[in-house]
Every structure is written in structure tokens, then in C-alpha cells.
Design a binder for these strands. Sequence first.
DNA 1: TATGAATGAGGCTTCATTCAT
DNA 2: AATGAATGAAGCCTCATTCAT
Lengths: 222, 222, 222, 222
Amino acid sequence: MSKPRARPAAQTRSKQTCEKLMAALERLLREKDFDTIGVAELAQEAGVAVGTVYRRFENKQALVPLLFDLWRDRSREQLSHAAITEDDIAQSDLRSLLRRQIRAAHAFICEQAHILRAVHLQGRLRPDLIGEDWKDLWDEARAGNRAFLDLVKDRIARDDLDRAADTMIYLANTALVEKALYGKDGAGHVMRLEGQAFADEMADVIYAYLTLPEVSSDTAAP
Amino acid sequence: MSKPRARPAAQTRSKQTCEKLMAALERLLREKDFDTIGVAELAQEAGVAVGTVYRRFENKQALVPLLFDLWRDRSREQLSHAAITEDDIAQSDLRSLLRRQIRAAHAFICEQAHILRAVHLQGRLRPDLIGEDWKDLWDEARAGNRAFLDLVKDRIARDDLDRAADTMIYLANTALVEKALYGKDGAGHVMRLEGQAFADEMADVIYAYLTLPEVSSDTAAP
Amino acid sequence: MSKPRARPAAQTRSKQTCEKLMAALERLLREKDFDTIGVAELAQEAGVAVGTVYRRFENKQALVPLLFDLWRDRSREQLSHAAITEDDIAQSDLRSLLRRQIRAAHAFICEQAHILRAVHLQGRLRPDLIGEDWKDLWDEARAGNRAFLDLVKDRIARDDLDRAADTMIYLANTALVEKALYGKDGAGHVMRLEGQAFADEMADVIYAYLTLPEVSSDTAAP
Amino acid sequence: MSKPRARPAAQTRSKQTCEKLMAALERLLREKDFDTIGVAELAQEAGVAVGTVYRRFENKQALVPLLFDLWRDRSREQLSHAAITEDDIAQSDLRSLLRRQIRAAHAFICEQAHILRAVHLQGRLRPDLIGEDWKDLWDEARAGNRAFLDLVKDRIARDDLDRAADTMIYLANTALVEKALYGKDGAGHVMRLEGQAFADEMADVIYAYLTLPEVSSDTAAP
DNA sequence: TATGAATGAGGCTTCATTCAT
DNA sequence: AATGAATGAAGCCTCATTCAT
């Protein structure tokens, strides 16, 4: 049950097969859940034989890490496009900056929802399949966010910027993802704001948090 | 494919069997995912025969709505225990009130994580099984929260209390649930605060949001 | 696997139960096949408990002989009503007599098709359940028919009346039953005549047969 | 609930498997009823795995149409062998011609009884599985018979040859099939003639019918 | 005696994986 | 290397029958 890896695909044809399979998988994920996609179905969609899938992947589960890689790559690409420049920081107020970022993140998640949904669900159903990779990506995101906070640290009220970075990332992810992936089927039902208005609301939540003065955490009674 | 219902269980023995099955299911859910629990396995854990499961439930899926009912009942019970009195409101500041509530909610979710995890996942995998019931519960929670906001409306900066209630419920749910259900396997990894400190942080997020003055939503550039 | 019998039903209540069950069975047989009627379904239709069925009948199969008895009783009753009197014989020609009889038989079979269908099918699926009883009824029918032929023997061309009686009964049964029980789903499809016209055609077949002079059976080449 | 079809079997191995399965099914049908043959049993008899059955057939019911095809193919083959030539017609009298044909049909039905029994029963239990195919075959048989009657029309007394063809086919089928399939377990019990003598008797019935002058159908009293 | 909940063997079907071609 | 037929364990569900109340 150790984490299955994709087999090496040194050869050209192999790489093509691998790509065909991932493309087919992505296409199918727009319509149905990973668990309900059969290997035969995937092979057919990719235009290869079942056996060919198993020449490339140890088993069906081995596709999950590759899906994660797909997500990570796109994720990084989007981050690089959406990067905040020093100019931005100089010219915009924090609230606007956050809105811009959260809107972009929200749009990106919505576009890639089919991938993220699979990664999300499989990551929870079989944590061993993605495991460390997730953590690395989270740490990366945290670091980027921490750097951003440093640039705007004089506009925020938090003392502990590390902690603020954690909370901000955590909020952005959980809150945006829930509605983007499951829409009104889950907690998204209560949140009546949609699209950009929703993203802005979440940005405001983060803005509010960042600008709230800290309090010693034992203020409240147990 | 319409929502399967549990069969009525008027008799004493039937009710006992039904309870044995739900108890067994709950026990198993602490160890594994709903989808990986076989009917035979459930029957054995409950100490009954396979056929007995099917006398009570139309099929395996029919257990899901009952799980939801379980969650709802416990949820309501916890809400009634945790209800804020007028005294509380008079004596405590808003931040403390929120912390108390969020701590209680967090503790409750952690205790019941095995149930909620199943309901959560199944609700996303097969929305038709729970569907409207979820929505009712959400609306209930929203209404309760809205009433609470009314009691403290002079301490918060939001103009639109309905929207504030929505956002607050949404945040509390997505943020608390993610970490409680999946711990470090998901986005919870970035959030290094644990237990009560985590709950307090989330309470502060909500506090910050509630006390942040509203802004016309077109302030930010598109 | 020996032929199961109904348990004796000495008591009044028992007899009532038995009757309720048979009536329910008959009602259900108008809608579906014996094999697809479950014991629970039967019990419910009869308004008794499943266990009660098993107090009266050793098992489900034990209903089949009773169904046969039902058929036999009604069959005898119809035969007694439709009996040909000496007057009839004196006043009608053979062709008309046969038509009258076959029409009556046809009408009767159509009315009782639900019973006969079950008896027919079950008798073929599990010959041991009805076995000898069938034979007795056939012999009875043959004897009656033989007596009839005796009364009209001067109008028919057959030498061997026994054999003629056999053939006549056999024809009447197979030909009428097929269409009455299965309509257009079976061989009935080719026979485009319906209702009385169909019955008359079959009567004519028999009439033709009875009036055809015999030929030594080795006329034809092997 | 639409008619299940066998999957296409282009490859050599597939065709072999398919043949192994049909052969095994035919073997089993000599011993027991279609409904009592389990898929596992069939697979074992064919020397393949259970899953292999389902690669070829959508489900167990999909075997029924194939059984019908088997019957039809053999049926057609027998018809082509038994075809009456013009020479036959010129040289033999009608009674002999009919005997020859009915004997052949009877022998054929007896040989193939195991197939026909299954097709017959399943066709009645689940008419949708065979449905139109039956009708086509019947119509084919009717047309052939009609052509035959045309060739001998000057030797028969019937005016309406279409109707005569219908009745002849209907009689031949119902009467021959009953005894061939169920022997003494059904109506066959009354018919004490066996084998060729039985076939000849049925041929005579048809001969008698064909040579009987028609009568307006309202001769008989209601 | 009646009840109906419980039983569990057995049937059908799926699908990830293997392997002969 | 690719193919896709074959495999068979494992899952779901049914229903005739039993038995405690």
C-alpha cells in the first residue's frame, strides 16, 4: 500500500501515451468523479488499450499523484502570473490588493475545479497518495504569502506575521475552495453571494483579519 | 435514483436492530470511509445478518440520510446547550462571546468528526442523497445566527446583517470543518495553530469581519 | 424434493386462512407470474403474516398442487354445465355440436387463464409437483370425450374411437390453450383469427379430423 | 428493460469464448431449466471465468436472444433441407406430402427440444427478450407454408388460402411442440401415440382440415 | 396460533488487474 | 511494446424459510 509511482517514461511514445492518458483523465473528470471512472473507460477515452495503462502506471491509484502534479504546475503558473509587483503595492491600498488577488485565485480555482476536486477528494480518501507533495505546495504558498505580508507589514495590525500568513492562506483556501468545488451542494448553500461578489467578501474577511489588532489568546474564558 | 429512505421500524425489536446498525456504522466510520464499509462488514459489526440490514434499509445508500439525521440531531442538541443567554450578551464583549461559541462548535465538530466526515463526503459524492435536508439545516443555522447578530447589532459594523450572518456561518463552517475532519491531510497543514488556539483564531477572524466597516463593493479595480 | 403437500387444516380459522391465501394468490396471478410472487407479497395480499403461510403450507411449492386443485374443480364444474344432452345430439349436426363445445371451452380457458397459466408453467418447470393429478384429470377428460364420441359414432369416419378421443382432446387442449394463455407472444401470433372465430376454426379442425376416413399408417414413405 | 444484446465479438478468441459459452449453455439446457442455471455454473461448464461471460453478454438475459438465434438458424437450415420440390408435389399425394413434412418437423423439434424449450419458456416469461424476432420467424414460416399451399391448391378444399396457411402453421406448432417439449408431463399424456405415429396423426389432422370444405362461420348457434 | 423480524445461502454483476497473443 | 480478452475476488441484494415473542 505504499505510494504508487508512475513508471518512468523515457521513450517518446511512452510520454505521448502518458500525456494522452492525463488529457483523457482531465476530460473525464469534468463529468464524473475519479472513483467512478473505470480504467477501461479511461483507456478508451485516451484511445489506448487497457494494458497500455498498466505499462505506464502501476495501478489506478498511481494516477492521483500525477493529477496532483498537474494541479501544482498550473497552480505555480497562476501564482507567477498573478504576482504582486512593488508598483502594485505602492499604488494600491491593501484592501484592493487583497481583492485583486482573491478574485484571481477564485477565478483560477473555478477554472480548475475538476482537477482540484479530484485531488481534494482523493487526498482525503487516501492521504498516503499525495501526502508530502501537498505539504510542499502548502509551504510554498505560505512562504509566498509571508513575503507579501512583509511588503505590506506596515499596513496590518498583526504582530505575528507568520501566524497571520498561515491563517490567511488557510482561510483563502478553505473558504474559496468549498464554494468553487461543490457550489450549492455543501456549505456553499448558506453563502448567497456569487462570483466576484463572493470573492470580494472573502477578501474583506482577510482584510479585516489582517487589520485587527492582536489580543492575548487567554482573554476568553475556557 | 431517487433518495432511498429507511423503512419504518415500528416494533421494538426493529428499533433495536436499527440502533444496533447505526451504532455499528458509527463505530466503523471511526476507522474507515463509508464507501469502503461493506454491507456484510456492517452486519457483522452489528451482530446481525446481512438480510436484516435490508429489512431496515432499502439499500446501502439509504444509510446516508440516517447518518445525516444523526448529525442533525446532535447538532441541534449542541446548539441548544450552547445557546447564548441575554445575560451572556450583557456581560461579555463580542470577541469573548464569539470565542466561546466557536470553541464549543469546534469541540463538537471534533467529537463528531467521524459522522460529519461521512455526511460531508457522501453529500458531495451523491448530492441527491441528502440534498434538501442539508439546506434546511443550513437555513436553520443561518436563522439562529441572524438572531444572534440582532442581539449584538450595536457592536458590529456591518450594515447588512443578513449578509453578515451568511458569511459568518459560511466561514465558521468551512474553516472549522476542514481542520476538524481532515487535520493535517488537507489545507489544515498550513494552519499550525491547534485546538483551542485554532478555534480562537477563527473566532477572531469572524470578529474582525463583523467589526469591519462595510465598503461599496466596487471599490476595487476589476 | 418429494411432492410437498398442504398441511391439514382441520380448524375453522385455518381453513379461512387457506382460503384467503388462495384467493390472494389468484388475484396476484392475474398480474404476475407465480415465480415472481414472493411469499411476503402473498401474505400481505392475503392479510396474514408470513409465518402463517408456513403454518398452512410446507413451503411455497406446496401452493402449486392447490392451484391445480382449483383448476380441476372449476374445470369439472364447467364440464358439468357444458354437458351435451341427448337432445342436443339429436337436434344438432356434429359440426355445430363441436363448435358449441369448443366455444365454451375456449371461453372458459380465457376466463381462467391466470390459473391455467400458472398450473401449466409450473407443471412443466417442476413436473413432480402436479404429476399424477394432471394425469387423472386428463384421463377423466378423455373418458368424457370418449363417451361423447360414442354417442355420435355414426357421424364420424374414424374406426378407432379411443384414438380419436385422444387426438381430439389433445388438439383441443394444445391449440386452445396456447392462444388463450399467451396470446400474440407465442405461436398465437400466426393465428390471426380471434375470439369466437378462432374457436370455430379449431372446432372445424376437429370436425375435419373426425370425419376423415382412416388410412393405414404406413402409407407414407419413411 | 429494453432487450439486452450480446456484445460484438470481433476477435478470434472472443468468438471462441462465445461459442464455448453457447455450447455449454446448450449442454446445460439438456439437464435443467434456463432459470436454474447460474452464471457461475455456466462459466464453469464453459471452462471460463465468470467475468468472461459478462465481457460477451450484457447480462444473463442477453443469452436468451442468442438462444433464439440458435433456434432460428437451425430452424431455417432444417427448412431448407426439408424443402418440397416440384417433383415431390407431382409424384406424391397431399396426405403423403404432409406426413413427410410433419415427420421431419417432428424429428427436428425432438432433437432440438432443449433449445426450443428454453426459448419457448423464456419467450413467455419475458416476451420483451425475443419479441419481434419470434414474429419475424413466424411470418417467414407462414409465407413458406402459404407458398406450399399455392402449389397444391387444387387438391385442397379451403377457399381462403391465407387463413388455411395460418391455421396449418398454428396447428403444426402447438400440437407438435407440446409433446416434443414436455412429453407426458403436459397435455402429451392424453396422446398415447408416440414418435412417427404421433406425427402422422397430426399430419392427418392437417390433411383433414385442408380438405374440409369451408362453411360460413355463423352456421353454429351462439 | 399468529406474527413479522431475522436469517443466510446464493444469485447477479463489477472492475482492477493480469497475461497470452 | 501494445493489445484487449480473460480473470476472479468482492460487493450488493433477494427471498424462501425459521423462530422468538
